[in-house]
Amino acid sequence: MNPQTIKTLIEQGLPGATADVQGEDGVHFEATVVSEAFAGKLPLARHRLVYATLGDRMGGEIHALALKTVTPAEHALATSGQG
């Protein structure tokens, strides 16, 4: 598994989302996912949405995935230095 494949799966599974995925060893990854679908959801629900895009690859091809899930508004605040 590679970061680009994970990025593609997440972005296809969450239309309108953008994902930045890193991981050099092929089994441990970290991702920042920005999606309007996260609005009004708690972190666990947000993570479940992302995991659903990856299906049974989680725990198999993808041993670990550290997630940061934010809405576009939260992302804008964080990147402006005010979040």
Rank of each mutant, 00 (worst) to 15 (best):
M1T: 06
A17D: 12
V34F: 13
A39R: 11
Q12T: 05
G26D: 09
A66W: 02
A17C: 10
E11P: 14
H47E: 15
V50P: 12
L49S: 13
A73W: 00
A52H: 14
P3F: 04
I6Y: 02
G59R: 05
L65K: 06
A37Q: 12
A76V: 02
A78K: 03
S80L: 10
G55H: 13
D56P: 04
G13L: 00
Q22E: 15
G83S: 04
Y51P: 05
G26S: 01
Q12G: 08
G23D: 06
L54Q: 13
G13M: 02
E30G: 10
T71F: 11
Y51K: 09
L54P: 04
L49K: 05
G13V: 03
A19G: 01
Q4V: 06
G60I: 04
A17W: 12
H75L: 08
G60A: 15
G81V: 08
L77K: 05
G59F: 07
V21M: 00
G16R: 07
G60N: 15
V70N: 00
A76M: 11
G23C: 11
G60D: 15
A66T: 14
M1K: 00
Q22T: 10
L65T: 02
A31E: 00
G81Y: 00
V70K: 15
K68E: 11
G81M: 05
H75F: 14
I10Y: 06
G40V: 09
R46D: 15
A66Y: 02
T69P: 01
L14V: 11
G26V: 00
V34A: 14
T18Y: 00
H28P: 07
G26P: 05
F29L: 04
R48Y: 08
I62H: 02
P15W: 06
T79A: 03
H28I: 09
V50Q: 07
L44Y: 12
A39T: 07
D20S: 12
I6D: 01
L9Q: 14
T18C: 10
G40A: 03
L65W: 09
A17T: 13
V27A: 08
P72W: 13
A39I: 01
H75I: 10
E74D: 13
A64D: 12
T8G: 02
A17P: 02
E24K: 03
R46Y: 12
A64S: 14
A31R: 02
I62T: 07
L49P: 05
L77R: 06
A73T: 04
I10R: 11
F38D: 07
H63V: 03
H47I: 08
G55K: 01
I6T: 01
K7M: 06
G59L: 09
L42Q: 15
V27D: 09
F38C: 14
E24M: 01
E11N: 14
A78F: 04
P3G: 05
R48P: 10
H63W: 01
P72D: 13
H47N: 13
T32P: 04
A66E: 07
I10F: 07
L42W: 09
Y51E: 14
S35Y: 11
L9F: 03
P15S: 12
Q22I: 00
E24D: 11
L67M: 09
I10T: 00
K68G: 02
L42P: 11
I10K: 11
